[in-house]
């Protein structure tokens, strides 16, 4: 799942997927702003068929956080 998330993040934010890890932070490492996050989360929602609530976005700081959130929603 992490690999797929990395692909989505790479495509959304225009970075190389192999430079990303679970610890990569959106704001600091990737300099993503709130709209970048919206777009990326939308792509994740479509890929994994889940809905991430807006309130949860504040807790999503790294690629690993996304993975954890999806696993929680799919559980």
């Amino acid at each position: 799942m992490l690999e797929k998330i990395k692909e989505i993040v790479a495509d959304s934010l225009g970075v190389e997927a192999d430079t990303l890890t679970a610890e990569t932070t959106f704001k600091e490492d990737l300099e993503a702003d709130s709209l970048d996050l919206f777009e990326m989360v939308m792509a994740v929602e479509e890929e994994f068929d889940v809905k991430i609530e807006t309130e949860e976005l504040e807790n999503i700081k790294t690629i690993g956080d996304i993975e954890a959130e999806i696993k929680k929603l799919q559980a």
């Binding site: 709130s34 709209l35 919206f38 777009e39 939308m42 807006t54 976005l57």
Partner: peptide, 12 residues
């Protein structure tokens, strides 16, 4: 406006 929801609505 709920910015995130409107953004999502528009781009989808």
């Amino acid at each position: 406006m709920d910015g995130r929801e409107v953004f999502k609505f528009a781009v989808s």
